Amino acid sequence: MPIVTIQQFPRDLTQKRELAQRITQAFVEVYGTPEESVQVFFSEVDGENWAKAGKMGCDRQQGQG
């Protein structure tokens, strides 16, 4: 049973639906796994819960990835 965990910034539900569908299809095509056995977990992190280069995400300016 494949389990895929994705850590990301919050995204639109429509985007997450499509990504989950594509990931599932990849497992079906490459591994021959039944769709029903593929699980995808989304862990979304906002700017108050991550830091880069010593600066909290919420303190960084837009475009400073």
Score class of each variant (00 low, 15 high):
1 M>E: 10
1 M>N: 08
2 P>E: 05
3 I>T: 13
3 I>W: 05
3 I>V: 14
4 V>Y: 00
5 T>P: 01
7 Q>P: 00
7 Q>D: 11
7 Q>I: 13
7 Q>K: 14
7 Q>F: 14
8 Q>R: 09
8 Q>E: 08
9 F>I: 10
9 F>W: 02
10 P>E: 07
10 P>V: 08
11 R>P: 02
11 R>T: 11
11 R>K: 14
12 D>K: 07
12 D>S: 04
12 D>T: 07
12 D>R: 05
13 L>W: 00
13 L>A: 15
13 L>V: 12
13 L>Q: 10
13 L>S: 11
14 T>V: 12
14 T>M: 04
14 T>P: 00
14 T>Q: 14
15 Q>T: 14
15 Q>Y: 00
15 Q>V: 15
15 Q>G: 04
16 K>V: 00
16 K>G: 02
17 R>I: 01
17 R>Q: 13
18 E>N: 12
18 E>A: 14
18 E>Q: 14
18 E>M: 09
19 L>W: 10
19 L>N: 04
20 A>Q: 14
20 A>W: 09
21 Q>G: 09
21 Q>L: 06
21 Q>F: 06
21 Q>E: 14
21 Q>Y: 08
22 R>Y: 02
22 R>G: 04
24 T>I: 07
25 Q>D: 06
25 Q>W: 00
25 Q>C: 01
26 A>K: 05
26 A>F: 01
26 A>S: 09
27 F>I: 02
29 E>Y: 02
29 E>C: 00
30 V>M: 06
30 V>F: 07
30 V>A: 10
31 Y>S: 11
31 Y>C: 12
31 Y>D: 09
32 G>D: 08
34 P>I: 04
34 P>E: 08
34 P>R: 07
35 E>H: 11
36 E>W: 08
36 E>I: 04
38 V>R: 03
38 V>W: 03
38 V>Q: 02
39 Q>P: 00
39 Q>V: 13
40 V>P: 03
40 V>R: 05
40 V>C: 01
41 F>P: 01
41 F>A: 07
43 S>W: 06
43 S>F: 09
43 S>N: 14
44 E>Q: 09
44 E>F: 01
45 V>H: 04
45 V>K: 02
45 V>S: 07
46 D>H: 05
46 D>A: 03
46 D>Y: 05
48 E>S: 15
48 E>H: 13
48 E>L: 12
48 E>M: 08
48 E>Y: 13
48 E>T: 08
49 N>M: 06
49 N>W: 05
51 A>W: 11
51 A>M: 09
51 A>T: 04
51 A>D: 12
51 A>G: 15
51 A>F: 10
53 A>G: 05
53 A>M: 05
54 G>F: 00
54 G>M: 02
54 G>N: 06
55 K>N: 06
55 K>D: 03
55 K>A: 02
55 K>I: 02
55 K>V: 00
56 M>D: 09
56 M>Y: 14
57 G>Q: 11
57 G>A: 11
58 C>N: 12
58 C>F: 13
58 C>V: 14
59 D>H: 15
59 D>F: 07
60 R>S: 05
60 R>T: 01
61 Q>I: 11
62 Q>A: 14
62 Q>M: 13
63 G>R: 07
63 G>T: 13
64 Q>V: 05
64 Q>E: 15
64 Q>N: 10
